[in-house]
């Protein structure tokens, strides 16, 4: 699925940087019903992780109350040049990945 990632392209070593992620997902709560009363099965993202050059730096669990197209922002310290890898995992075997690179001077 489409994802929008905002990571600064460049940073100074030791800088605190903000990472913003937005991904496409309906986040169906599992509590709603159709017009004829049938329960709409739950379909949400349950977990998000961010790895910085392989090491996990951020993880979040997501729940039915979170809106569609979840937006997450968090901070980290720019230590070295490299790659951020993002992964969203959800119901019905859902999995989506994205990545962004940074140059640390």
């Amino acid at each position: 699925m489409a994802a929008l990632i905002n990571v600064p392209a460049k940073a100074k070593r030791g800088d605190i940087i903000e990472i913003r992620t937005l991904t496409s997902h309906i986040m169906e709560t599992g509590f709603r019903r159709t017009m004829d009363g049938a329960l709409v099965p739950r379909d949400i993202i349950t977990s998000f992780t961010c790895r910085y050059n392989g090491a996990e730096i951020f993880r979040a669990d997501l729940f039915p109350a979170i809106a569609a197209n979840p937006y997450l922002s968090f901070f980290t310290v720019a230590k070295e040049s490299g790659k951020f890898e993002f992964e969203w995992i959800g119901d019905n075997g859902y999995s989506s990945t994205a990545s962004a690179s940074i140059t640390v001077e």
């Binding site: 489409a2 994802a3 929008l4 990632i5 905002n6 913003r20 937005l22 991904t23 496409s24 569609a68 197209n69 937006y71």
Partner: peptide
């Protein structure tokens, strides 16, 4: 204003 936080941009990408 920010294209990386505007959820409408997900549809533009699609």
């Amino acid at each position: 204003d920010d294209d990386t936080s505007n959820p409408g941009m997900l549809f533009v990408l699609d």
